[in-house]
Amino acid sequence: MKLKGIYTPVLTSFKEDGTIDYPAWEKVLDKQINAGVHGIVVGGSTGEFYAMSKAERLEQFKFANDYIAGRVPWIAGINDVIATEVYSFAKSAKELGASGMLVAAPPYSLPSEEELAQHIIRIDEAADLAIILYNYPGRTGVEMGTEFLELVADRKNVVAIKESSGDVNRIHELALKYPQVSLCAGAEDQVLEFFAWGAQSWVCACANIFPEACVSFYQTCVEEKDFVKGQKYMATFMPVMEFLEQSGKFVQCVKYGAQLQGLTTGPVRLPMLEMSDEMKAQVKEVVTKASIELAALANE
């Protein structure tokens, strides 16, 4: 597959008792598809995979595949602390209909770059399915650096890298040295820089709140090459993106922002806690302001 467009790492709707609220989640999926996103990521950190059992994660994959029913591709987040479980998730993702897999380093174990490359190769051998690498050293503790990329970048199933380090120099390095691996925007507050350096996709948590606007932003920059208007989009998104990246309440902000857009998202799962009323007011303020400005941009 080629990773191109807006891929939303969708939130997971929960009931008050903590179980997955599938009727509400259907509306989450429909909103994304109806807004024109190019694909959906199921089982990412925005979806709180880390707080789910293996059985729940596999059930969610199966439900997503059946409900999406080919309307858009879906990507399986297969990450886990236990490496052997990742290989099992990879095999299941293919069996359950995923178009690809989003793969980060296993957290806490801190593998070397060679060890991490061998991990990716085992995943590839387990599933023979498209792999989107996910470089997020802030979460995993290790970098998908040069030694790692030299070992995996030429594998046919390694199709893209979601770069979430926050280091703008990585954008330049990936675009110039590893053109065989499609560059995917992964840092919400650097999306314009990614697009300027040729990124063809954005795994876009912000699309849980503003799916239509994220698609328009992508079309403006990638398809129309209009970076003047793209800068206007970025300026409008920035307060929301900064809140998501810097508040320390990423999932809570995404879920509350989606609630403000009429979706039922339910609570977050432990160890996360709900936001304070003060923070909710701040999120509401930035989301409301961005909604008004994005609507005006769409009419330009």
Rank of each mutant, 00 (worst) to 15 (best):
G186M: 10
F194Q: 03
H172A: 12
Q200H: 06
A187E: 13
W202E: 10
G198S: 08
K162G: 06
F148R: 02
C204N: 14
E193V: 00
R155N: 03
Y134P: 07
A130T: 15
M144H: 06
I131V: 12
K177V: 00
L176A: 14
A187P: 01
R155T: 04
R170S: 11
T146P: 01
D167K: 10
F195I: 12
L129G: 04
K177W: 00
A130C: 14
N135M: 08
T146C: 00
A196S: 12
E150H: 14
G186V: 08
I161F: 09
D167W: 01
A196V: 13
P137T: 13
S201M: 12
D128S: 15
G166H: 10
E147A: 14
Q200N: 13
V159C: 01
G166A: 10
C204M: 03
V203Q: 13
E147F: 08
V181L: 04
L174E: 03
V181T: 01
V181D: 03
I131G: 09
K177S: 05
E147D: 15
V152A: 05
W202V: 07
Q200Y: 02
G186C: 08
T140S: 15
I171N: 02
A126R: 03
A175V: 09
L129S: 06
D167A: 08
N135R: 11
Q190A: 10
P137L: 15
E150L: 09
V191E: 03
A187H: 12
E147L: 14
F148I: 06
L174V: 08
G141R: 10
Q180S: 09
R139G: 01
Q180R: 14
C204T: 11
E143N: 10
A185I: 04
A126T: 06
R155L: 13
S165F: 13
D128G: 11
L151N: 06
A127P: 05
A199N: 10
A185W: 05
Q200F: 01
E125L: 09
Q190R: 11
V159W: 00
L174G: 04
L149I: 05
E163C: 05
A196K: 15
E163Q: 10
G145H: 09
G138V: 14
G186N: 10
L176P: 01
A196G: 00
L192K: 05
D189A: 11
I161P: 04
I171K: 05
D189Q: 12
A196I: 13
H172I: 14
L174M: 15
K177A: 07
R139C: 05
E150Q: 14
A187K: 10
L129M: 09
L133I: 00
G166F: 07
G166I: 12
N169A: 06
Q180N: 15
K156Y: 02
S165M: 12
L183N: 06
R170A: 11
E143Y: 09
S164M: 01
I171V: 13
A187N: 14
F194M: 00
W202P: 06
G198V: 07
A196E: 14
A126K: 04
R170E: 11
L183K: 08
